[in-house]
């Protein structure tokens, strides 16, 4: 069946290329065999084992040459930690000295990643979204691609889960869970004042959700259904996208933004940074949980 389809496809490709459909179709293997190979004589000389050995030696030598070249390059780089290095230039001066005045966050890194270089971070969010989508496509298990073996495995997992020998895990999670969630929310909401921000806070929240799911499976699954997941994720991405469009538009045209910077150092300050941090954090937490769910069960 598959061979037939391949044969027809090859004929179709030959027809597209302008060849007469009656001409015999040449497979890629035959073509390759007909072409004289410059290294063909080596294949005769080397057995398969020797070929592997040559490959190993070649890769070690290549790696050593590569590392040596890079180490030589270090000799020409500016000294580590020296003041006045070329990286300490007017870009850094602008970001450090004008950051609080222009954007308003006391954590200067969040100024850079969310406003000055917001385009990078927006692309990164899209990469994360794409990765979650690809994982979903690759690992999703529905009626069509579930074999009897998968079903047996899933039944075994359910059996292990129902054995109720998770007392230690459950009591520890009961104690740790509020602390983890509180820390995650703190990191998320204080991203413009202290180290942290959307990505780290979201990863902490996601890790907490994964832990919670391990201890009390049903409760989390009832809450994080597929609808909730899609709603949170899409709403967060849309909010992020529209906010960034507004920031880009006003920033690029030199317009006055209606979102003020507030008093630096207060919780409600720094304009768009805190809402964006919350949106990014929710998206990252959802993505991390979705990674876990698709890797372990193949569904949300």
């Amino acid at each position: 069946m598959t061979k037939n389809i391949k044969e027809r496809w090859r004929q179709f490709a030959a027809w597209v290329n302008g060849a007469d459909s009656d001409t015999p179709v040449v497979t890629p293997e035959e073509k390759r065999a007909a072409r004289p190979h410059p290294l063909r004589f080596l294949h005769g000389m080397l057995s398969e084992k020797n070929e592997m050995r040559v490959y190993h030696i070649f890769s070690v030598v290549m790696c050593l040459v590569f590392t040596g070249t890079l180490l030589l390059t270090v000799l020409y780089l500016p000294t580590f930690g020296g003041a006045g290095n070329p990286t300490e230039n007017e870009v850094m001066e602008r970001y450090v000295e004008k950051g609080i005045e222009e954007v308003g966050a006391t954590n200067l890194i969040s100024n850079i990643i969310l406003v000055y270089r917001g385009f990078d971070t927006f692309g990164e969010s899209c990469v994360l979204f794409l990765a979650a989508t690809c994982v979903m496509i690759l690992l999703r298990k529905d009626e069509k691609n579930t074999t009897a073996y998968d079903l047996a495995e899933r039944a075994e997992d359910a059996e292990i889960e129902s054995e109720e020998n998770t007392t230690v895990l459950r009591s520890v999670v009961r104690m740790l869970m509020p602390v983890i969630l509180l820390f995650g929310v703190y990191v998320l909401l204080n991203g413009h004042l202290s180290p942290g921000g959307g990505f780290s806070g979201g990863a902490i929240l996601g890790a907490g959700l994964i832990l919670f799911e391990n201890a009390f499976g049903e409760k989390v699954r009832r809450f994080m259904s597929e609808h909730v997941y899609h709603f949170i994720k899409v709403a967060a991405l849309y909010f992020y996208g529209f906010t960034m469009i507004y920031v880009f538009f006003t920033g690029a045209n030199g317009l006055h933004s209606i979102i003020g910077t507030g008093i630096p150092g207060m919780i409600f300050s720094a304009g768009v940074i805190m809402p964006i941090n919350v949106a990014v954090g929710l998206e990252v937490a959802c993505t991390m949980y979705a990674f876990y769910a698709f890797f372990s069960k193949g569904e949300l």
Partner: peptide
Amino acid sequence: APIVADPTAPVQMETYINPL
């Protein structure tokens, strides 16, 4: 680290590392 402790005072570049 580039986290300003006192936002009321003017920020000196010589205090912080390169945040980029």
